[in-house]
Each structure stands twice: as structure tokens, then as C-alpha cells.
């Protein structure tokens, strides 16, 4: 069934300026997120996951900029918008949850102040009292116990899980169309992690929003994702439904990622890492950027960048070895 696309990203190129030279970090990435869908982005540290979210939010650090491509939110082009127009969209139409809940709240302001601040900016007619009532109901919805007291507390009085819930409540109170979660569970322990994931899934359903979920935890992916894209060195190397990716990974990198997760059922309990590391963005690799680490690499991998090939409906991989296209 065709669903409404909340976010459509086309051929996104983001570059960073280091010593007066531009180094592309994202090389033409395309993806979309539909309503009521969770798209997980996986890849190892430094592959461009976070840069991707920051590009979408347009919160890149000063030396980074989007060079080309298009980012459409509900059909509205975001690139080229002025900063104050972007400010209207951030929070209102898309919200972000960060990795580190411990540092994402202003330590000197109460939870209540920080929550009502956003609410009242969002809805100018809201009185202080109404904003507080709304904040209470959102805290209730995310399962914060004793929300009345929490409103009057400072962030240091809250645990990490609670702070992440507060962050989620804050973002939720803006009722965004798109939720961007950048490793929201990495800093939490496993039980809290599960609760936060369930909460996000519930939110997605009740608000009919799309979720763009960044993680490198494949367990989390299996739990929450509808579709998955795999990034490597700023390129999308594979895309598919969560089933397709887990049951039939096409790209050697994806297979490597899967194999690297220790299987608790096995006796040996061995970790099999992918040898080598990501190429330095300042010394780009010709051809497929994965070829120096790829066990299956062939001559063509060193010279030609593999295109994305659809191997089955909705399942794409960028590798010369898929789709019977052997050299």
C-alpha cells in the first residue's frame, strides 16, 4: 500500500571544510521515511549516520554544509530555507532525541521551565498554567512517575532514563511529523532501553509520525525497524525491510556486521570483527569504498563505484557481486 512519505531525501551530499578544503562525508544518499514507519540507519562509527541527521535538521557544525541534493519534509523543500524558517520547522514538524540524555537538558533550569518554554513557543496563546498542565500530561504519557514533582526538579535530580523520557516528552509535546532519534538508547542500560524503544513505537502509532532511528546496535534494529538502510563511508550500501536485511543480507559489509554480533546460542561465543577500519575522509578510496576490507573484492571493485541494484522488491544493495552481475 502506498503510504504518505514524511521525509524524502534525494541525493544528499554533505561536505566538511577542513584546512580550507572540502571533504564530502555523505556522497549522494537517498532515502525516505513514510508515516508510521521506522527507518533504521546502521553503520559503524564515523560512517556518516549522525551527519545525516544533522543535515536533515540543518544543525551541522559551522564547517559542515549540504552541497547538493534535496530534503523534503511533507513535500516541503528544506534546503535553502532561511534560519528563522528552519527554526519554525524544527520542533514543530520534526523533533530530535539525542544520544546523551545526561547533557541534553540545561542543568540550571527546572524540567517544568524547559518543557513549558517549548510548548509556549509552539503555541503562543498558551498560558503558563495551560502549558504546565500540558507538560504534565506529556510526562504522564511517557511514563514518568510523579510528574508534578518532576516539573519542579532540576535535571541533576533525574536518572538517565528519566531524562531521556523527559527529552522524548519535550519533543513529543511539539507533535512532530518526523522523529529523529540519534542513538537514543546507547547511554541507557538494557531494561531502560527496552522501555524507551517501546515508548517510541507507541508514539509512532499515536502520532502517526515517521521515525528516523540511528543506531549501531543490531539488536535494537531487529526490535524497532520497519526498514533498514546500511551506510558505509557516506554511501548507502544496502536498503531493505528489516526481514530482507536480517534474513538475506546482500552486501558483504552488511553480512560482516551481522557476523560481528556474537550469537549467544553458539558455544564459542566468538566476536568476529570486520578487519580494518573506515577510510579516512581526507584520503578517499577509489571504487567501492569497502573494497580494502572486503574478502570478496574483485578487480572491478577498485575502480568502479558499484551502483545500487534492486535484488528483490524494496531490497537494494550497492555491490558488484549482487544480482548476478559478476565481472
Amino acid at each position: 500500500m502506498p503510504q504518505t512519505k514524511v521525509l524524502q531525501v534525494n541525493n544528499l551530499v554533505t561536505a566538511f571544510r577542513i584546512n580550507k578544503q572540502e571533504y564530502p562525508v555523505l556522497n549522494g544518499i537517498s532515502f525516505d521515511v513514510a508515516q508510521n514507519e521506522t527507518l533504521c540507519v546502521v553503520g559503524e562509527s564515523g560512517c556518516g549516520k549522525s551527519v545525516m541527521t544533522l543535515s536533515v535538521m540543518q544543525l551541522l557544525p559551522a564547517n559542515g554544509s549540504v552541497k547538493s541534493g534535496s530534503i523534503k519534509l511533507d513535500g516541503q523543500e528544506l534546503l535553502g530555507l532561511r534560519e528563522n524558517e528552519m527554526g519554525q520547522i524544527r520542533g514543530n514538524k520534526m523533533g530530535m532525541i539525542f544520544q546523551e540524555p545526561m547533557t541534553c537538558l540545561n542543568p540550571l533550569l527546572t524540567i517544568g521551565y524547559q518543557m513549558t518554554e517549548g510548548l509556549r513557543r509552539h503555541d503562543k496563546g498558551l498560558s503558563k498554567k495551560e502549558a504546565e498542565a500540558a507538560a504534565l500530561s506529556y510526562l504522564n504519557q511517557v511514563g514518568v512517575s510523579n510528574p508534578e514533582a518532576r516539573l519542579r526538579q532540576y535535571p541533576f535530580q533525574l536518572s538517565g532514563g528519566l531524562r531521556q523520557r523527559v527529552m522524548i516528552a519535550m519533543m513529543m509535546s511539539m507533535r512532530p511529523r518526523l522523529l529523529i532519534a540519534d542513538e537514543p538508547t546507547t547511554a541507557l542500560d538494557v531494561t531502560i532501553q527496552k522501555q524507551v524503544l517501546l515508548l517510541l513505537a507507541k508514539l509512532k502509532r499515536t502520532m502517526n509520525a515517521g521515525i528516523l532511528f540511528i543506531t549501531h546496535d543490531l539488536g535494537v534494529v531487529a526490535e524497532i525497524a520497519d526498514r533498514v538502510i546500511v551506510l558505509y563511508a557516506g554511501r548507502k550500501v544496502e536498503e531493505g525491510t528489516v526481514r530482507q536485511i536480517f534474513e538475506n543480507p546482500q552486501h558483504p559489509y552488511t553480512r560482516g556486521l551481522m557476523a560481528a554480533v556474537p550469537n549467544i546460542a553458539e558455544d564459542t561465543f566468538e566476536i568476529r570483527p570486520i578487519p580494518g577500519s573506515l577510510p579516512n575522509i581526507m584520503e578517499p578510496v577509489g571504487g567501492c569504498s569497502f573494497h580494502p576490507r572486503c574478502k570478496e573484492a574483485i578487480a572491478r571493485c577498485k575502480s568502479v563505484i558499484p551502483p545500487l541494484i534492486e535484488t528483490s522488491p524494496g531490497h537494494m544493495a550497492a555491490c558488484h557481486l549482487v544480482g548476478g552481475q559478476t565481472a
Binding site: 535538521m57 544543525l59 534560519e83 528563522n84 527554526g87 519554525q88 520547522i89 524544527r90 520542533g91 514543530n92 523533533g95 530530535m96 539525542f98 546523551e100 547533557t103 541534553c104 537538558l105 540545561n106 542543568p107 524547559q114 518554554e117 517549548g118 513557543r121 509552539h122 527529552m167 519535550m170 519533543m171 511539539m174
Partner: peptide
């Protein structure tokens, strides 16, 4: 450079605010 500045920015706060 603090995360919470990025966080309030992501919630749509203006520079002034």
C-alpha cells in the same frame, strides 16, 4: 558546544532565546 544548546535548537528555539 553543550548538547542542551543543540537540543533546544532542535526544538526550534531562536538564537536570541
Amino acid at each position: 558546544e553543550e548538547d542542551y544548546v543543540m537540543a533546544v535548537r532542535s526544538l526550534g528555539a531562536s538564537d536570541w532565546r
